[in-house]
Design a protein around this nucleic acid. Structure first.
Lengths: 333, 333
DNA sequence: TTGTATGCGTTATCAT
DNA sequence: ATGATAACGCATACAA
């Protein structure tokens, strides 16, 4: 900027204003300055700017640390990608947040401060981790995905309605003996489970305890085990609902191992609607979660809360899902 | 730091030195300063530090922009994750690089300069994109994955040897009619293709042109089409090698649609060794690419080239893969 | 061993 | 409409 100011015969301050489109600057000079800047290959220094303005134009991303699941899970990687695209469109960069930067471990909050993140998106973590709580309670704007903190913005996939729709679809295909393999205990799981029971009750379906099996999200092994148990039952379900599409693969193998065919001998549903589910044959009937909308909305809300801290009111935004009808749920007479 | 200096009755400079473990500082004062710093909840400001030192401790990540494939592809997301872990261990943060930050589009190089990235890892992009070339030719240290630029560091999965091993394995199971569905034209594809032909030649296997079909990586549809063509052949291959595990799903459906069973009627191999491949039944025989090692090595090399710019010599590091023997290649008599 | 002074690149304030 | 100046938080060369 100093060089530019010399070349143009003006002060650095004027250059700064011109480049930032400040109104109180001569149209001709401004244009000239911009031209020279372009010619000299000028580009702003984000660090200096951040130092001065206290705004880094940088968003933190707190996804899971644990090996796998974070980026491996298509639902989350899809959210991340969508978040990234929207954030960039709005002029923000993305930085991963973690502890343990270079030996000296810091908390998530410290890391965010260190990098001067203007805001943070949190997903796929243990929301009860004290460090996560600390971060959410700080003055840094946050948006959480699929988990609500008091007076904080959250983007939520509509698990209640979705589960309702999915069960209702299965019921409409004539099924009355519906099993549900659910993921580990999280607020998402609780919602799906409650909605499952409630919808069944509404439809007059009774659910024996042995039809509801615990498993782990994104872990085909545990779903395979649960499937085995269900298939061993005297009174088998006619349809098994899986915690997610990926886990279903474990169940699929188990079912085939028993010489059963989907959907002729047993029907199944997934959850998530990831690409894989629509490539399998038969196509999986599943509940599509709109990861793109979720990521986009998360970025939009986060940026809005950053740009308008005074007027922004934390809100919970519910993103609807929808049943994708595949061919994995047989029509019973 | 100023506050700390006052509380300790020393100058800011002394505080800075003490905190950075400078040798020329009193042990007692240093200890005291550190204590006070901790007590006051001091944390360094990355921006100010970067401004002063010209080092941001921040690495750029240039993965694909195109919808999908970048993060959706487990091979790459796995590399990214591993890269991230190692980089953080070495004290570096990760920032995504892209063009189009906030309306004003900049080139990859400009974005890197803007964020003052100390180095960049490049993977899964179009390596012939002029902007990518510009970035690689700049003074910013780069590491590319699975592609070599002149006098630049690259981490390479050993496609030549791997393909050799895989073909040899198939051959050892008695197969002589081997088809190969390959991905779009990249240097990786060229290597695999050449190694495929060369190994077949060494083993005395002749490869009819119609046994080699083009497809697209990570695109089950195109592999399904290729599979269809292969199955329609008068003289069918006994084994089909797929471009990657994920694409195989497309082929799998096609094969089952024809009423054929794997591996009894036809054998198959994948490539990548992603989690999915080991969950399918039968387990897929595939070529495991060590994404974790690749990501880790990329980070290690990049950081080394940053810390020791003078002594660092660009190198190409080849990471071996290995055949994972599943149950998808039948033993022929 | 410690302190002083300076500057990194930028923006904001206030004066002109 | 433009400019002078200070300051953001930190690290370093040099002086003490």
């Amino acid at each position: 900027m100093k060089d530019i100011s010399k070349r143009c015969g003006v002060s650095p301050a004027t250059v700064s204003k011109a480049l930032n489109g400040s109104p109180d600057i001569g149209e001709e000079t401004a244009e000239n300055i911009r031209a020279v800047a372009r010619e000299m290959g000028y580009h702003p220094n984000a660090n200096a700017r951040a130092l001065k303005t206290k705004r880094s134009n940088n968003l933190g991303v707190l996804f899971i640390d644990k090996t796998q699941s974070g980026l491996a899970h298509e639902y989350f990687s899809s959210i991340l990608n969508s978040f990234k695209v929207e954030a960039e469109r709005l002029g923000f960069d993305i930085t991963f947040i973690s502890r343990n930067i270079g030996g000296t471990s810091m908390t998530y909050l410290e890391h965010c401060r260190y990098r001067h993140c203007d805001g943070v998106v949190i997903a796929s973590v243990d929301f009860y981790d004290p460090e996560v709580v600390e971060l959410v309670k700080s003055d840094i704007p946050t948006v959480t995905i699929d988990h609500v903190f008091d007076n904080r913005t959250a983007i939520l996939s509509d698990n209640i309605q979705s589960m309702h729709d999915l069960v209702k679809y299965v019921h409409s295909r004539g099924h009355r003996k519906i099993a549900f393999i659910h993921g580990e205990k999280t607020s998402v799981t609780q919602k799906r489970l409650a909605s499952f029971y409630k919808t069944c009750a509404e439809l007059g379906i009774s659910v024996p305890d042995e039809y509801v099996k615990p498993a782990i999200y994104h872990d085909p092994e545990s779903s395979a085990r649960a499937t085995r148990e269900l298939l061993a039952l005297n009174d088998r379900p006619t349809c098994i609902m899986y915690p997610d599409d990926y886990s279903f693969i474990g169940g699929m193998n188990e079912i085939e191992k028993c010489g059963l065919t989907i959907p002729d001998d047993i029907s199944v549903t997934g959850y998530d609607g990831i690409h894989l589910s629509q490539i399998l044959r038969p196509k999986l009937t599943t509940l599509f979660q709109d990861a793109v909308a979720i990521g986009r909305e998360a970025a939009a809300q986060l940026v809005e809360s950053i740009l308008s801290p005074k007027t922004f009111i934390p809100k919970q935004i519910v993103i609807p899902g929808r049943v994708i009808e595949g061919a994995s749920v047989k029509k019973l007479d």
